[in-house]
C-alpha cells in the first residue's frame, strides 16, 4: 500500500489525509496518590493522522483512559509535548468530541434535548442544530424517540443517543473510551459497524479505546498496543485489512494473524 501511494503523483487531498494531525512526544503522566507517585503513562510518543481510525488496546490500568484524557485536554500532562495541528493541546476544544463507556445522559432532558446539549453549550445556530440533530437521531436509528427520556431507554439505545450527541457539534476528532464496552456482544457489533459507516462517511479522526483485541483489529487503521506498570506504548500495528470491513473478515487468516501479533506484544500467550 505504502509503495503504491509513493508512486502516485501526490495530490493536495492525499497529503492532508496522511498528515499527522495529533503529535505526542515523550508524554508522561504521573498521578500523586496516597501511596506515592503513580506513573500512569511513561514516555509515550506517537502520531495520529488526519482521518485515521486508531485504537488503543491493552489490559486495564495500562493508561488508555489517561492517554485519551490527555488527548481531550482534560488532564494536565506531567512531561512531554502534545499538539493538534501544531497547537498545544492543553485544554478541551470544541473540535474534539469525547464519548465514554456510560452514556452520561441527563435524565431531565429528553433524548433530543440531550443531543442538543453540545449545540446549546457552544451557542450554535438553533435552527441548523435542530435539523442536524434530527438527522443524527435518524442516523443512529432512533427516529421517533426524540421526545422520550433516558430512563425509558435500554443500554444500547442510550449509547446510540450518546453517539448522536458526540456528533452534534461536528467535531473533527472523536475520542471514544470503551464506548460500547458495557453493551452485550450483539449490540456492540452492530454499533461498531455503525461507527465504521459514520466514520467512512465523514472522514473524522477516531481514537478508540478498547480492551478487546479483535474489535481493535476489525475497526482500525492502526492499533496502539499498550502495556501496564508503567503505562507504555509497546508497539503500533498497521492493520492492512481492506475496507470496507465486514464481519466475515474475522474468518480470514490475516485477521487472526494480526490478533495474535497483538496478543504476543501484550505477552498474553
Amino acid at each position: 500500500m505504502a509503495l503504491d501511494l509513493a508512486q502516485l503523483p501526490k495530490t493536495e487531498a492525499q497529503d492532508s489525509r496522511h498528515r499527522a494531525l495529533i503529535q505526542g512526544s515523550h508524554l508522561t503522566k504521573i498521578y500523586a496518590t496516597s501511596t506515592g507517585p503513580l506513573v500512569a503513562l511513561d514516555d509515550v510518543s506517537f502520531d495520529i493522522r488526519e482521518g485515521e481510525f486508531v485504537s488503543l488496546v491493552g489490559p486495564s490500568g495500562c493508561g488508555k483512559s489517561t492517554l485519551l484524557s490527555l488527548l481531550g485536554g482534560l488532564e494536565e500532562r506531567s512531561e512531554g509535548t502534545l499538539t493538534l495541528n501544531g497547537q498545544d493541546l492543553d485544554r478541551p476544544r470544541p473540535d474534539i468530541g469525547f464519548m465514554l463507556q456510560t452514556a452520561v445522559l441527563f435524565p431531565w432532558r429528553s433524548v433530543m434535548e440531550n443531543i442538543r446539549l453540545p449545540g446549546a453549550i457552544l451557542g450554535l445556530d438553533r435552527k441548523a442544530q435542530a435539523e442536524r440533530c434530527q438527522e443524527l437521531l435518524e442516523l443512529v436509528g432512533l427516529a421517533g424517540f426524540g421526545d422520550r427520556y433516558p430512563n425509558e431507554l435500554s443500554g444500547g439505545m442510550r449509547q446510540r443517543v450518546a453517539l448522536a450527541r458526540l456528533l452534534a457539534h461536528d467535531p473533527d476528532v472523536l475520542l471514544m473510551d470503551e464506548p460500547f464496552g458495557a453493551l452485550d456482544e450483539f449490540t456492540r457489533e452492530t454499533m461498531n459497524l455503525e461507527l465504521l459507516r459514520i466514520w467512512s462517511a465523514t472522514g473524522k479522526t477516531v481514537v478508540f479505546v478498547t480492551h478487546n483485541i479483535g474489535e481493535a483489529v476489525f475497526l482500525s487503521d492502526r492499533v496502539f498496543v499498550m502495556t501496564p506498570r508503567p503505562g507504555r506504548l509497546a508497539g503500533v500495528v498497521e492493520i492492512d485489512l481492506p475496507r470496507p470491513r465486514q464481519t466475515e473478515m474475522m474468518r480470514e487468516p490475516r485477521y487472526s494473524e494480526l490478533v495474535f501479533d497483538i496478543r504476543h506484544m501484550l505477552g498474553v500467550d
Partner: peptide, 29 residues
C-alpha cells in the same frame, strides 16, 4: 454529581455557569 458528567461538560468547553445551569442545578433538585 457523577464525575463523568462533569468530564462531559468540560470536554464540551462549558463555562462554570453553564455547568451549573445544565448539570449541577437540575442534578441537585
Amino acid at each position: 454529581v457523577e464525575p463523568n458528567a462533569v468530564k462531559l461538560m468540560r470536554s464540551l468547553t462549558a463555562s462554570r455557569w453553564q455547568t451549573f445551569r445544565y448539570l449541577l442545578l437540575p442534578n441537585a433538585l
